[in-house]
Amino acid sequence: MIAPVAKKHLTAGIDAGSSSVKVAITRSEAGDHPEILATAVQRIRRRNIVEVVQSTFAAACAEAGVKTEDFDYIASTGDGEMVEMRTGHFYSMTAHARGALVLEPAARAVLDVGALHARAIKIDARGKVLGHRMTGQCASGSGQFLENISRYLGVPLEDIGPMSLEAEKPEQVSSICAVLAETDVINMVSRGISTPDILKGIHLSIAGRLERLLRAIGADEVVLLTGGLAHDAGLVAALREVLVQGKKNVQLEARSHEEGILAGAIGAALLGAWRVDQLVKKGRLELLGARAAA
């Protein structure tokens, strides 16, 4: 990146996902030296997503003590059209790549595991995307699948990770198809397999898919989990296990961060700040908020 203008940019990143909305408010120098002023996450839960976006954004603004008109740039990622107050939009892959570097500067790959898709992204030290692979149509590598399973098993979503860690003899499930995997789970329940063993089997199945994505992009260093499943301790443990088993000549190391779910929002906010700098230099002030234009 070219040398940033020495000015603090107040920017927001709004990640409108398929199951939750994440907001990060940052102050930075064109994206560098970031300070995260506030964050907010809200589940959509069949509500109007535009209203959830507004509500989550308002909550983050209240926490940071700022108003909409104070921002230099409001960046959307995910389903950007739901973010009416946006200045511009960044693709989720780019946003997660940038946000991951803030949370884990050593990361050279990102595993964004959201509600509908999982995506492996190879990045460089600047957060530039070098390559990526994502799961196809099947949902078996996604958060939505885990949500369905938690409902079948009657386990609260937040308990899935800790419970998976208690497994003693994980049961193998289909790693190909969510429908078949769900049938597997029903069979396991009827066979009396313990819930932790079922959950661990599912986590290992997902981890196997994630590992193949990582191999496909040639990841060989630190990988950070982001997205809605970044919090899932069971998945993180399973991924580490799979990476150790599959380790040949590469030194893949999976890491997580307690704010991994916010990576997209943080990244979008910082890319927005970088973009402010560019637009000012290009004289495209009409695209910016009044504060930046001034």
Binding site: H89, F90, Y91, T94, V129, M134, L271, W274
Partner: peptide
């Protein structure tokens, strides 16, 4: 959408 999004971002940022 993946391809267009990646292209759009690369033009904007790089």
């Amino acid at each position: 959408r993946e391809q267009a999004g990646a292209f759009s971002d690369s033009v904007k940022l790089w």
